[in-house]
Design a protein around this nucleic acid. Sequence first.
DNA 1: GAGTTATAGTTCGAAATCGTACCTTATGGA
DNA 2: TCCATAAGGTACGATTTCGAACTATAACTC
Lengths: 149, 149
Amino acid sequence: MRNTDPAIFFEVFNEIAIIEQLSRAILEARLPHGLIAPHFTVLNHLTRVGDGRTPIEMARAFQVPKTSMTHTIKGLEGHALVETRANAQDGRSKRVWLTDAGRAVRADVIAGLAPDFAQLAAGFDMNRLAAIKPVLTDLRIFLDQARDG
Amino acid sequence: MRNTDPAIFFEVFNEIAIIEQLSRAILEARLPHGLIAPHFTVLNHLTRVGDGRTPIEMARAFQVPKTSMTHTIKGLEGHALVETRANAQDGRSKRVWLTDAGRAVRADVIAGLAPDFAQLAAGFDMNRLAAIKPVLTDLRIFLDQARDG
DNA sequence: GAGTTATAGTTCGAAATCGTACCTTATGGA
DNA sequence: TCCATAAGGTACGATTTCGAACTATAACTC
């Protein structure tokens, strides 16, 4: 018998929403003044997948409206943590590049988070976290595809 | 050997942030005009745990600032979906009660979500969802306590 | 190759979020 | 009882979020 009780959805998504709040608060407590979670998320993304991404690409990756991404990138540019250049392959588009300052801020923030990571690693079974990751990834992919389809 | 690679945190919290975005979008697509996810979350919470809760209690439950909860409740009052009365036990406080319209809206929204639930149940293994729920709950509790402590 | 349609990005305005400061009422000592 | 401190809630302002409309370029079709 399959579990199709709608309650499970509300409960899971509710927990996810709360964890999102809490993890964002932890991150933002370590960010330099003027930066918030979306800024760091972009810096981190550009570091991990390589810079030169386009705004629309990142908007899709994070599932935020492109207007929000415009605003976030503008904020990062204001702090000189990224810079944008025209996209030679597409005249409508631009590409976003990390500056040295941007890389440095990202590294500093991660270093600053070490105590938080340590506390979490000490008090919570990391194997359980690792175990749910593939499920979360699959769920994210499924919801993403369901949205398009 | 224990997995303490910081990357696991970023990856898990990143997936959670994206799922939060997607699930919120799904919900809001089914909400009547003028209502957004936090409004529904309050209606649902009051239905599940019983109304007569105080704003601060709900702010803590959802881990949002109390000013945000003030604003959300004001929105619900504007739509006559909840009403607030003084708290006889505490002169500083108030209690929030569902109206009949509030209960009806909550029920209608859940009914409207049935197709989304069905699609999810059909395409995603519900057992996997059920399996991660306790981990998410424990993680939420841990982060919540770490925040206080 | 002209015309239609789609896509990347911005502008603009409305609403939501949230930190700070503040008011009011409780609570906990001296 | 008085005073200090804590807690519930709101007012206010700065910033964020995001939908709608718009511009500019690309892609597709006939």
